[in-house]
């Protein structure tokens, strides 16, 4: 009996302490001291919110650098029991989860590579990211798109290539992760350079 009482009392007390007081206190600290991060690291152009610095978005036009293939989906508005492809749906994260021997995956990798050109392409451009929201490309993945973007914008390739190179971020603290380019930041810089 005394064990039952302890079990119930401690369940309630710790729900109040760790399930409410703790997350709400952290929320308070975040909203007061670190509001930019706490609210999703939003990026503005002028007045308009154009995205989050951390979340990739869908770029389909030739005049923009395009992020990695994304496997996210959304509910089909025509038939709510079905899902349709909706790349970079930041309300429903997912990877492809296709296995290494998957015919579907092999076909998708082949089709993506052929759409980009001859021979092997940068791996990040032909494989789906884990989250479907990967905001980054490898430097090689961005450089591979320079010719297309330069043509669409009517700019010399050298200028666009220099822009990409300026946007390359090194490893964090010089050691962790790998060099990468934030696609949204790159495209914002691109719009500023060559509207």
């Amino acid at each position: 009996m005394s064990q039952l009482r302890a079990a119930l009392v401690l369940s309630v007390l710790f729900t109040l302490l760790t399930g409410l007081a703790y997350p709400l206190a952290i929320t308070g600290i975040g909203q007061v001291l670190l509001p930019h991060q706490a609210n999703g690291s939003l990026v503005r152009r002028g007045e308009a919110v154009v995205g989050s610095a951390l979340i990739g978005q869908n770029f389909a036009l030739d005049r923009y650098f395009q992020g990695r293939p994304s496997a996210t989906s959304a509910v089909d508005p025509a038939d709510t029991t079905k899902a349709i492809d909706a790349p970079y749906n930041a309300a429903n994260s997912t990877g492809s989860n296709l296995g290494p021997s998957s015919k579907v995956l092999a076909g998708a990798v082949e089709a993506r590579a052929k759409a980009l050109g001859e021979g092997p392409q940068p791996a990040d451009l032909v494989t789906a990211s884990a989250s479907g929201l990967d905001p980054h490309l490898s430097p090689a993945g961005a450089l591979a798109q320079v010719a297309r973007v330069a043509k669409a914008r009517g700019k010399p390739e050298a200028e666009i290539r220099a822009l990409v190179e300026r946007q390359v971020e090194g490893r964090d603290l010089g050691i962790l992760g790998q060099p990468r380019v934030n696609v949204l930041a790159l495209n914002l810089a691109l719009d500023a350079l060559a509207p």
């Binding site: 990695r68 990798v109 940068p122 791996a123 494989t127 989250s131 990967d134 992760g177 790998q178």
Partner: peptide, 21 residues
């Protein structure tokens, strides 16, 4: 299976994120 289309230098990147590598 993907070696002809995905540059093998980066290894298997399906289902991985660029920032982690």
């Amino acid at each position: 299976l993907h070696a002809a289309y995905a540059d093998p230098a980066a290894g298997n990147m399906e289902g991985k994120e660029v920032r982690f590598g």
